[in-house]
Nucleic acid binder design. Structure first.
Lengths: 142, 142
DNA sequence: CTTGAAATCATCCTTTCGGGTGAAGGCTTT
DNA sequence: AAAGCCTTCACCCGAAAGGATGATTTCAAG
């Protein structure tokens, strides 16, 4: 923010200087008024465009609550992912550990590990973070 | 786009008309040159701001391929996440292991581990999958 | 009834993660 | 100069994850 103010201040200073110089030229060398005006107009138009550019840049806080998720059943079938595996995948994507998923689904840790292993094979990945990524790309999960 | 051009053209026409009127007043009523200049400057600054606004906010007609992700710098600052940590976060979200990230950034595995640990503290999570999730919610990463 | 897929659980072993702690060098601010 | 943050790296330890393999049960389809 400080930077912007500095740049703006500097620009203004330069502009004022230019204007004064042009004003001098105007009276000294009898330049056409139109030329003088054109230069001023262009300069301030440029300044305005720049200012508008800065002003319209939101710089943050855009929260999107898109709920437009269409479940891709074809991909599921194509990859041969079973219902249970898909369930595990969903919990995995929510950041749960294998143990926590096991507790959620009332099965043993080993079972979840088996499911995750199979998932990794079917999704052709080797880590859960990659699995989540790929699953989202394929619209297997929201 | 045609609309914008039309409006811009119309505005220019009006401005020119105004200028000519002012020019007449200038010579006829002996207004101060400074006043004349100030009016011109303000007008064109306003025009520029409007143009900049239009240019940066196409509002529709532009085909945007990339996802509408607006980087949330405020959250980053609020959470006190450094540039390097954010960088690690990005690679983490792409499914890379700590070792792979270390290779990408040309630092040691230990360094990456330090960054991830700090990230987990700052994001108030305990697993990388959760960190990725939270970072996405906060628009820290696409 | 047999076959096969799905779901369940297990064991063994290796790699990766996560947590804790410490520390050195660089850069900025006070 | 001193304080503070960032970045870098190190070591240790336990927990979690991943890979390989095998086994049992259930259930639907051939």
């Amino acid at each position: 923010m400080k930077k912007i103010i500095l740049i703006y201040g500097a620009s203004l200073a330069v502009l004022v200087f230019l204007l004064k110089y042009l004003e001098y030229q105007f009276f000294a060398k009898d330049l056409a008024l139109e030329f003088y005006l054109a230069v001023i107009a262009m300069l301030f138009t440029g300044l305005g465009i720049w200012a508008g550019f800065r002003l319209t840049r939101p710089k943050g806080v855009v929260i999107k609550m898109s709920a437009d998720f269409v479940f891709n059943e074809r991909e599921l079938e194509r990859l041969g992912i079973s219902k249970r595996e898909h369930e595990v995948l969903e919990w995995m994507a929510k950041g749960l550990s294998n143990q926590e998923i096991a507790d959620k689904l009332f099965v043993s840790l080993n079972t979840v590990k088996t499911h995750t292993s199979n998932l990794f094979l079917k999704l052709e990945v080797s880590r859960r973070t990659q699995a989540i990524q790929k699953a989202k790309e394929l619209s297997l999960i929201p």
